[in-house]
């Protein structure tokens, strides 16, 4: 029964033409799809990874993770953007970045009780202690890491809303810092990025 049905068009010339036309149409469709596939492959062939870090903190310790990760990712050849907002802006602030501080208040891992850590002058001492450790360990300074990031093409962005909120001026930031950007810019980059981090 089924054999008969399959054989039937072969015996019938007009039906054979239809089949040939169908095959031709299918071939064209396959070619078209193959082309689309190879175009898509070319588009995604750019396997450069990218990372966006949102840096929200500006204490001496917390300024490190974004800069270390950004410079290392740049060493991998990734496209890196660091979006600085709130206290994270201080990392890019030409004056304030040289004087980032650390407090033992609220940090129970530090060897100073909160009651003492909150006395006047204690933050200065804690910061001095931390700076000495950084020097002794030959850990790169924030300035060095910033220079490295700029040299390696990391895009440093400063959130416009918080620049205004903190009453900073756009000229307060290092040359090369991108200003005039907001949450939508950050999100757009994050959507396309392979790695997104909030620090």
């Amino acid at each position: 029964m089924s054999t008969e049905t399959e054989d039937a068009p072969d015996a019938d010339a007009p039906a054979g033409d239809t089949e040939a036309a169908d095959v031709e149409a299918l071939r064209e469709r396959v070619d078209e799809l193959e082309q689309q596939l190879s175009d898509a492959a070319v588009e995604t062939d750019d396997d450069t990874k990218s990372m966006v870090i949102v840096a929200t903190k500006g204490t001496l310790d917390m300024a490190y993770p974004p800069l270390i990760l950004a410079s290392t990712a740049a060493a991998f050849g990734w496209d890196v953007t660091v979006f600085h907002t709130f206290w994270g802006l201080d990392i890019l602030h030409e004056e304030r970045s040289k004087d980032l501080k650390l407090s033992a208040v609220g940090n129970p891992n530090m060897p100073v009780p909160n009651a003492i850590a909150s006395l006047p002058g204690m933050d200065r001492m804690t910061t001095k202690m931390m700076r000495k450790r950084i020097d002794d360990n030959e850990t790169a300074s924030i300035g060095e890491l910033l220079d490295t990031c700029f040299d390696m093409g990391v895009e440093m962005q400063a959130c416009q809303m918080t620049i205004d909120l903190m009453d900073y001026d756009e000229d307060d930031f290092y040359d090369g810092v991108t200003v005039g950007v907001g949450a939508a810019t950050a999100l757009e980059r994050m959507a396309d990025a392979d790695v997104q981090l909030l620090v």
Partner: peptide, 14 residues
């Protein structure tokens, strides 16, 4: 020598 993370990697790349 002496350099700490991330500088060995960064300087190697450079």
């Amino acid at each position: 020598k002496g350099a700490a993370c991330p500088m060995p990697v960064v300087k190697t790349k450079q």
